[in-house]
Computed example of a mutant assay.
Amino acid sequence: MKSKTFTFPFISLLLLLFVVLSVARSYDFFYFVQQWPGSHCDTRRGCCYPTTGINPEANFTIHGLWPNYDNGKYPHDCDYKNRYDATKIKDLLPKMQTKWPTLECPSADGSKLWAHEWNRYGTCSESILDQHSYFRAGLDLQNKANILSILEDANIRPNGELYSTKHITEVIKEALGVLPSIECNRDASRNPQLFQIYLCVDKLGKDFIDCPFYKKRKCSPEIEFPKF
């Protein structure tokens, strides 16, 4: 009879422990991804400036802050009830329009991009970062990793010239203390160009860390750094 008396509380405790562990292991780190707008625009598809009339700054802009697991997989669309709400980040919108803009066609004001990022990725971090904290973290991380400034200090400039992919990687690593991953795309003439920089961030969204793994991304030994 005693064993039956404690069965329900014991099972409840196990379920609670499972839930706590599940939340704690909801993801292991973030990919923080910045893109060079000049490479986004210099493709066969081209780009469109935002309808707000506020152009992206001539710097690497934020693409996303994406939670990942150490095994190479990632969570997504974690909470269909907690959808993007612009009123929760009203104070951040002026900076997001220049630092986290959309260049997709047809032109838009950015809300579709931000809704996608929160609904698909941000909701998977809400046990630690609510919507405001999530977007604030992206803006803060960009301030910590001013990629254009880092590259220009090493005489790597967006002038249409070719640069060593290895050298770009080494310069960023020396400045930030962590190894980045470089992603390329191709311009209208099919030449490879510097497109996106991936950095890994701890699950609090604050500090850059060494990536648990390095996903291979297609890039040539020498790549163009186009103007913007």
Results as ranks from 00 to 15, higher is better:
Gly38Thr: 01
Gly138Pro: 01
Asp85Thr: 00
Tyr163Phe: 15
Asp70Leu: 06
Gln142Val: 11
Glu170Gln: 15
Gly72Val: 04
Cys105Gln: 07
Ala108Thr: 14
Cys41Thr: 02
Ala137Ile: 01
Trp66Leu: 05
Ala86Cys: 07
Gly138Tyr: 00
Leu15Ile: 14
Phe29Leu: 04
Thr51Ile: 04
Glu174Gln: 08
Ile150Leu: 06
Ser125Cys: 14
Pro221Leu: 08
Pro75Leu: 10
Asp109Val: 02
Asp202Arg: 01
Ala137Ser: 15
Leu13Met: 14
Gln131Asn: 07
Asn159Glu: 14
Glu57Phe: 07
Gln196Tyr: 08
Thr123Arg: 03
Ser22Asn: 12
Tyr80Trp: 10
Trp36Asn: 10
Phe6Val: 12
Cys124Val: 07
Phe18Asp: 10
Ile150Glu: 02
Tyr31Met: 06
Val178Leu: 05
Thr165Tyr: 08
Asp77Ile: 00
Cys41Trp: 05
Glu57Gly: 10
Cys78Asp: 08
Glu117Met: 13
Pro9Ala: 09
Thr102Tyr: 03
Asn155Leu: 15
Asn155Val: 12
His132Ile: 04
Gln97Arg: 15
Asp210Thr: 11
Cys47Ser: 06
Phe60Glu: 01
Tyr31Phe: 15
Ile223Val: 14
Leu92Phe: 08
Ala154Pro: 03
Asn55Arg: 13
Asn59Cys: 05
Glu104Val: 06
Pro37Gln: 07
Asn55Asp: 09
Cys41Lys: 02
Arg186Gln: 07
Thr51Leu: 15
Asn143Ser: 14
Phe30Glu: 04
Thr123Ala: 10
Asp42Thr: 06
Thr169Gly: 06
Asp42Arg: 12
Val178Gln: 04
Pro180His: 02
Glu170Asn: 14
Arg25His: 14
Thr61Val: 15
Ser12Ala: 14
Trp66Thr: 01
Pro9Asp: 09
Ile62Glu: 03
Gln34Met: 14
Val19Thr: 03
Gly64Leu: 12
Asn191Ala: 12
Pro94His: 09
Arg83Trp: 01
Phe208Glu: 02
Arg25Phe: 12
Val33Cys: 05
Trp100Tyr: 15
Ile209Asn: 04
Thr165Pro: 07
Pro180Phe: 00
Cys200Arg: 01
Val33Asn: 03
Val20Lys: 09
His116Ala: 02
Gly177Tyr: 05
Ser181Arg: 06
Ser164His: 09
Ser127Thr: 15
Cys211Tyr: 03
Asn59Trp: 06
Gly110Tyr: 02
Asp91Phe: 00
Ser189His: 13
Leu92Val: 09
Pro37Glu: 06
Ile168Met: 13
Arg136Gly: 00
Tyr80Thr: 09
Cys219Gln: 05
Glu161Arg: 03
Ile128Tyr: 10
Lys173Phe: 08
Asp77Tyr: 14
Pro158Lys: 04
Glu117Leu: 12
Lys81His: 05
Ser127Asp: 13
Phe135His: 10
Leu204Gln: 13
Cys78Ala: 11
Pro56Trp: 08
Arg157Tyr: 12
Gly46His: 01
Leu148Tyr: 02
Ser3Ala: 13
Lys90Trp: 07
Lys4Ile: 13
His40Pro: 00
Asn191Ile: 11
Leu113Thr: 11
Glu104Trp: 08
Arg186Thr: 10
Val19Leu: 13
Cys78Phe: 11
His63Trp: 11
Tyr69Trp: 12
Thr165His: 06
Ala115Ile: 00
Lys227Leu: 07
Ile150Trp: 00
Ile209Glu: 09
Thr87Tyr: 09
